[in-house]
Amino acid sequence: MPKSASPVGTPLTIWAVSDGRAGIEAQALGLAQAVARQRPASVEIKHVAWKGELGRLPWRLMPFPRLLLKSGGEIAPPWPDIWIATGRATLPLSIRVKAWSRGRTFVVQTQDPRIPARRFDLVIPPRHDRLEGENVFPITGSPGRVTPERLAAELERFSAELEPLPHPRVAVIIGGKSKAHDLSTERAEAMAREIETAVRAAGGSVMVSFTRRTPPEAEAVMAARLKTLPGQVWNGQGDNPYFAYLAAADYILATEDSTNLATDAASTGKPVLVLAMEGESRKLRLFHDDLQRLGAARRFEGVLQDWSYEPLAETDRAASEILRRYDIRQRG
């Protein structure tokens, strides 16, 4: 069996590979950092960008993928001990890196790759994808970057502007358009009105963050109404206060369109209230049902509700499984 690419006692090298989109990169990087918290390791971020429309081709039609990258130098030897990748763009590389490394690299793919899991050392999909197999380790939600240490550090960094906000503080995290969901101006207006009513009734404040997928018209409508409340609406300029908002919040409201947003929120131990959007996704419905079963989330029904639960720690659990299987292979 292959031996480790690093001599015994030296830190592992881990690559977090994605196409660079924030939500996709967060999964690979969050999982890589979780492994590094459990064992000495250096983590490198790698971005995959294909020439022209080649990234849309099925992986079988790309026999020499490194030649088709816009920047081949970023995906080049020396190969890492552990390769953690997320997203369709990485698949042509993920299924070949073991051969390129002569079996030394342990290959992990998050999400459902929609190709046989046996092509990887480990696949870590969300439980709601219902993927099974010997080398499949399902988790609730998606890997993320929320840890108690990060929340504390980000809260300290933004303390001057967040500390004066009245309690209860409500973090409002808004997604947007996806294959299954949308946020029209009409729904955005109704959602903002519902949030405003609940926060005013509680005498609290808001901390509002939009994502890149939020339609500009919907963002404008929501920002205009929510700016009338105590708090702040981040305009996308300067340092991103996203993690500070999660840390400072007494309640977190997150739209239903994103596994990442709800997973991050449920990793804090704060009450998570899910905001309904237009559209429907069976997989996301199963995911939100799972969060509700775990006691982390409930549907937002116009009022702020209090409850407690054990913070979600699926990323650390997945990292432990990576190291367990990595060690077994190295001993073999």
Score class of each variant (00 low, 15 high):
332 G>M: 10
199 V>W: 04
189 E>M: 02
224 A>C: 07
138 P>W: 06
275 L>H: 09
69 L>W: 08
117 A>Y: 02
79 W>Q: 07
161 E>I: 14
16 A>Y: 05
131 L>V: 15
114 R>K: 15
224 A>D: 14
230 P>A: 05
191 M>Y: 02
82 I>G: 11
140 T>A: 12
302 G>C: 04
252 I>V: 15
9 G>D: 13
65 P>Y: 09
32 A>K: 06
265 A>D: 07
222 M>Y: 07
34 A>Q: 14
25 E>L: 15
229 L>W: 08
234 W>P: 02
27 Q>L: 11
89 A>N: 15
274 V>W: 02
190 A>F: 07
97 V>P: 11
299 R>L: 04
158 F>P: 10
40 P>K: 07
141 G>W: 02
253 L>S: 06
238 G>V: 04
277 M>P: 07
43 V>M: 07
61 L>V: 01
193 R>Y: 03
12 L>D: 11
73 G>K: 12
38 Q>S: 12
167 H>N: 12
191 M>K: 04
1 M>A: 15
312 L>E: 03
305 Q>T: 14
233 V>M: 09
187 R>P: 05
190 A>K: 11
172 V>Y: 00
82 I>P: 13
255 T>H: 03
7 P>T: 07
91 L>W: 00
188 A>V: 03
8 V>N: 01
1 M>K: 04
165 L>R: 10
92 P>F: 07
4 S>V: 03
88 R>S: 11
141 G>T: 04
150 R>T: 08
307 W>L: 05
75 I>S: 02
243 F>N: 12
302 G>W: 01
15 W>K: 12
45 I>H: 11
303 V>E: 12
327 D>G: 03
204 G>N: 12
325 R>F: 04
46 K>A: 11
146 V>M: 14
66 R>Y: 01
286 L>A: 12
193 R>H: 13
110 T>Q: 05
294 L>F: 05
247 A>C: 01
232 Q>L: 15
203 G>S: 10
80 P>T: 09
216 P>A: 14
43 V>T: 01
216 P>Q: 09
263 T>P: 06
199 V>K: 08
45 I>S: 13
187 R>A: 09
188 A>L: 06
